[in-house]
Amino acid sequence: MSILGNYVLPIVLTLIILIALYKKVHIFDVFLQGAKEGLSSTLSITPSLIGLVTAVAMIKASGALDIFSAVISPITSFFGVPSDVIPMALIRPISGSGSTALLDSILKENGADSLCAKIACVMSGSTETTFYAITVYYSAVSVKHTRHTVPSALFADLVNATVSIAIVIIFF
């Protein structure tokens, strides 16, 4: 399966180049044109990314997630949810690298085939970092009023966390 994954990127790339060659496109010139646009896109999202990354680093360092987990855990453990996965559900929408680090420690402490590890894996594999996507996409086009984006995306995250827990408990 992971070998298959290695093929995807080179195949996509080669396929596009072959088609472009067949259509007699000035491949490298066109590439440079496009790549230049990438440079200005990166520049336009830089300020907001720095802002977001700093705020996320602050949340992680302050222990806020531990406090939230401590508050939520009594309720969720009533429903048989392992308390180790609660911080995962909280950090997943905020930080991609943070959730990978947390996943690593859950796997280390509970073993890769434990129920808790499986739930954490499903949580982390089945969604994207919500606030990162929102920040990057809107700041690239300087949209200030995001309207119902955050409520809808967070609702999807809540569904995601709930389903992750339920499905692993049912399947395994």
């Binding site: 790339l13 596009i16 180049i17 088609i19 472009a20 067949y22 259509k23 496109v25 491949i27 066109v30 590439f31 440079l32 044109q33 496009g34 790549a35 646009e37 990438g38 896109s41």
Partner: peptide, 12 residues
């Protein structure tokens, strides 16, 4: 963004 430009121009 460079590659997608190629894909655009060649009709992919």
């Amino acid at each position: 963004t460079g590659l997608i430009k190629i894909a655009d121009v060649s009709g992919v």
